[in-house]
Design a protein around this nucleic acid. Structure first.
Lengths: 138, 138
DNA sequence: TATTGTTATACTCTATAACTATA
DNA sequence: TATAGTTATAGAGTATAACAATA
């Protein structure tokens, strides 16, 4: 194998992807982590804050600031869990869903453009390999 | 296309790669950025600190702490540029080269294992696509 | 006593602006 | 004056521990 190291290549690509996402999220008034939280909320139904922290990989104490802001802007709602009032159930509001959908579309378009110049077979292999490598449980 | 977003996949994989590199670098007494600096020094000959900062993507003011430590441990040397004494030329010492080589071998082995389960065609496409996408000038 | 969410504190990392020595 | 390297300062991000409410 004769290529730069994975860490080097990944960090460069990560920087590029983040640079392209930044204006999209800024236009929606979101920070990077806000977006990760909204995405997780769309995928899993009615998680507690602890579950949300686990799925996003964010520390539970740092998650709080994001939720405070998102709640203040009406994108998420927190309500106590009737079954265990220590928990707070987080959910997307309709406004949050709209913002999330707009960002997703813009980001998908950005990704399509980013990958456009690749050889189609390489691109397919890249996506399959990346998906496999990013599996949580290893 | 039906997969999670690039940013999500890349950050997960990045976290996994860093977790696997950490013990290797710790055993060599290196921080992540130290290793990036040593790698850059092996590739490009006798850069000034400003050039080194540019190639590694690290801010010149933050680079200084790494160089101070690496120099104190005898892995790099700084000498004034005779042609322009404002510059300081950074170079690998033999000890630095040895540490770097050991880390490189261990990291290459780690990467081989990380990618071992992939379909060979996907793996080749992944490496080609990633190399292409990580090009600096875009 | 243990757990969820929260707050407080200290620590690290980063960004920015000065400062020095050379040019 | 402009630049390379350095230092200093303030801000953001992070980790850790304590705290209140509930189980």
């Amino acid at each position: 194998m004769d290529r730069p190291e994975l860490g080097f290549l990944l960090s460069r690509l990560m920087r590029e992807v983040m640079a392209r996402e930044k204006p999209i999220l800024e236009a929606a008034g979101l920070e990077m982590w806000d977006y990760a939280v909204l995405t997780a909320l769309a995928d899993s139904a009615a998680p507690t804050q602890a579950q949300l922290a686990a799925t996003t990989g964010r520390d539970k104490t740092r998650l709080i600031g994001n939720l405070d802001r998102l709640e203040a802007e009406g994108m998420v709602a927190r309500r106590p869990d009737p079954a265990d009032r220590r928990n707070r159930i987080v959910s997307l509001t309709p406004a949050g869903s709209r913002v999330l959908r707009r960002c997703r579309e813009a980001i998908e378009a950005m990704e399509t453009e980013l990958l456009a110049d690749l050889d189609p077979a390489d691109r397919a292999g890249f996506e399959r390999a990346l998906t496999s490598l990013a599996e949580t449980d290893r």
